[in-house]
Design a protein around this nucleic acid. Structure first.
Lengths: 216, 216
DNA sequence: ACCTGAACACCGTTCAAGT
DNA sequence: ACCTGAACACCGTTCAAGT
């Protein structure tokens, strides 16, 4: 299940021949390169085309405008991250709460940090464009995967799974985003990764206690 | 203690006459208006000047470039938020942990949500510009205020206050940011506000237990 | 001391012409 | 089916001229 494009941000046409597919990939790669090397300010369609070794016209054959290019780039990336989270969630159905929390936090954290230059570049680009629908779709997928997982844990039964799950994920997303935005060194990052797991776990424990006051 | 401007983003000159001060205020107001009414894409210096009722030249007398204008706008805003957090922290020195957490989370949350249209507009604008130094300075102020407060609570003694405080604040910042970015309805927002307090509290409780295993 | 607005370089986007 | 690049409208920024 791929993330959809709203019509005004959809790519102009799908490449039909092999060389065109290559062209699109080259354009994506060039966009990332320019974004990382020169920053959002200097990310111009001319520069992207130049770096990709094609003419501007070619770029505009596949993307109706600059926004659509950035949008598609983000969509690609979020799709990969969402897929990874879904996979981890499914493989932890029925696991103890502590393992679920650790697995989900770590999956998301790793997906974002293993290529942190790309992540940071995309975070920067993602405000240039109307990415609400993109983030919403991403959120829904992860939300569903996580809620389905949490519902299967043997050692908890939450009073309001929807709200608890939302808080759980919001804390994860927000923390990771903040770590990137504040450009924190990896040492602080790994402290926070560990503490984030502790925070989510103590929260879920407390939420479980609220729901079942009779528990140990 | 005001948030500083790095030289390349500093306003060009301070207004010296009353009418110039008014002009700068008018330009700030116009920038917010354009940002909220038309969005980041259509935020052009010409449009801002037009809405402010001055010529572009006037705008460029006070701000060396568009970035500096957005930067100054953000600086103003973050300064107000930081001041509020500092005040709340100082007034809660020596309070029980639960009251500290609730006060800090609520102060930050309220500062961001009471004029949520402005907050959202500024979140959007803040990636157009190199705001790292701005956010860093803001972060340092809030970090210091919060750590100083946490150190005075009667009912806890944290093993590593620095790290625990960082996680505490990161969760707050990140959650609020995510709520804005995902455009969540206020009903979900207030659920998350309440859950965020619960999450921070259960985390700090657990961190305290780690430090003092002998406690009740 | 402050304001104006025409002028210039550059960017996003198009489209007639090419393979 | 895909690619090219000159052309156009618009934006950021400047500066000579005004009060």
């Amino acid at each position: 299940m791929d993330l959809d494009h709203p019509t005004h941000l959809a790519p102009r046409k799908q490449p039909r021949q092999a060389r065109a597919t290559t062209t699109v990939d080259i354009i994506f790669e060039a966009t990332l390169q320019v974004l990382m090397a020169e920053g959002l300010q200097r990310l111009t369609t001319t520069r992207v085309a130049q770096r990709a070794g094609v003419s501007v016209g070619t770029l505009y054959q596949y993307f109706p405008h600059k926004q659509a290019l950035l949008y598609a780039l983000n969509a690609r990336y979020l799709d990969i991250v969402a897929e990874r989270v879904e996979t981890v969630c499914e493989s932890h159905h029925g696991a103890p709460l502590a393992r679920m929390v650790e697995a989900l936090v770590t999956a998301y954290w790793t997906a974002k940090t293993e290529r942190s230059d790309v992540t940071r570049a995309l975070y920067r680009a993602s405000v240039e464009l109307d990415n609400e629908s993109l983030i919403e779709a991403f959120g829904r997928r992860v939300d569903a995967a996580s809620a389905a997982m949490l519902a299967t844990t043997p050692d908890a039964d939450f009073a309001d799974l929807r709200v608890v799950n939302a808080m759980f994920l919001t804390a994860i997303f927000g923390t990771v985003r903040t770590v990137f935005e504040r450009n924190m060194p990896t040492s602080v990052g790994s402290d926070l990764h560990r503490e984030l797991i502790a925070m989510c776990l103590s929260y879920l424990d407390a939420a479980r206690a609220r729901a079942n006051p009779s528990d140990a």
